[in-house]
């Protein structure tokens, strides 16, 4: 059943992506000055030359490069830290760095979550111009998801980061509820696409085109230290809730998370908790605040690359702290009993 809903959503997304392109050239009224009695330069005299006006050029291109490079580097680092280094410590460092740059410095824009709407709108309305940087932000994390899983969620996404830092007293969400709530994000994805396109399959979005993901982005208000009261409260509630329920927005609401979840299902080299020898001690399941470990194995579509499991894993401790294998066994047995 859940699967059906998920794939239905994917199908809908594909239909929009490959679907109609409505070309509507927009007629622009000309700006006409009332008169032309400007004194010419030679009338002003003394060799005066009218200076050029500073034209408001878009952000310099190298800034776009910085953004793209930061994103790429963060994705690569996140992959390496989680899959190679298996280090929670370094991942937290990366998380904080990305929160600082993509969150507070870039104030939550540009972000792949919102980019869903830009991409949709660009496909629905050919007059809408989609900046290349948005395309890259939209696609790169998807490619990483297909290769490694939800790398972006782990160390890169500022929305994930702010939630990840408040996970203090995680409690288990009953699996049934976890799954049911998880469907919300697919619904949100479809609704967001519906609104961004303005109309889906001939049905107009009530209230007209709207970037609802950005409008109801719960954390961007914190990055900007301003926002509408309702959304700020929503963000605050999510953060408080996030103390007990690990990353609620990522797991249940994030529409981009929905896309990533689908793709990471087919990840080529995903997180595996014990790649060579398996203790099956279950400490990892206990460590995971996201309910992403089932039967001592990571569920790739839910795993948010937070690396907590590695931090708890006695095997990794063996490597790093040179613990005696006996101690590990003993601990494992304690847990099992």
């Amino acid at each position: 059943m859940l699967r059906l809903i998920k794939y239905g959503c994917v199908l809908a997304v594909l239909m929009v992506l490959l679907g109609s392109e409505i070309a509507s050239p927009r007629a622009e009224a000309q700006f006409v000055r009332p008169v032309d009695v400007v004194p010419p330069d030679d009338d002003i005299g003394e060799g005066y030359k009218t200076p050029a006006v500073q034209r408001p050029l878009p952000r310099e291109a190298w800034w776009n490069l910085v953004d793209v490079a930061s994103l790429s580097a963060a994705l690569v680092l996140s992959t390496w830290i989680v899959l190679g280094r298996r280090s929670r410590y370094w991942l937290v460092a990366l998380t904080v760095a990305c929160l600082a740059y993509f969150g507070f410095y870039r104030q939550g824009c540009v972000c792949p979550i919102g980019a869903i709407q830009n991409v949709t709108l660009s496909l629905a309305d050919s007059t809408y111009v989609l900046p290349v940087v948005v395309i890259v932000f939209f696609l790169l994390p998807l490619v990483f998801a297909l290769l490694f899983g939800r790398v972006f969620c782990g160390g890169v996404c500022p929305l994930g980061a702010i939630q990840d830092l408040v996970v203090l007293q995680p409690v288990d969400v009953p699996r049934r509820w976890d799954k049911r709530l998880g469907i919300l994000k697919y619904v949100y994805l479809v609704v967001a696409i519906w609104y961004a396109a303005g109309a889906l399959m001939g049905i107009e979005a009530p209230g007209g085109r709207e970037f609802i993901i950005c409008r109801f982005d719960p954390f961007v208000g914190f990055f900007r230290f301003t926002g509408s009261a309702g959304v700020l409260i929503f963000g605050g509630v999510l953060l408080v809730l996030g103390i007990f329920i690990g990353r609620p927005y990522c797991r249940y609401l994030c529409p981009y998370g929905a896309l990533l979840a689908i793709l990471s299902r087919f990840a080529w080299r995903g997180v595996s908790i014990t790649p060579d020898k398996e203790l099956d001690c279950g400490l990892c399941t206990e460590a995971c605040p996201l309910g992403a470990i089932e039967k001592n194995r990571a569920v790739l579509s839910s795993c948010l690359f937070c690396a907590r499991c590695f931090d708890w894993c006695p095997r990794d401790k063996t490597n790093r702290a040179q613990c005696q294998e006996g101690d590990v066994r003993a601990r494992a047995e304690t847990v099992e009993s």
Partner: peptide, 9 residues
Amino acid sequence: YDVCLDCNR
């Protein structure tokens, strides 16, 4: 544009 965040919304 050197200042604008180019917010989606």
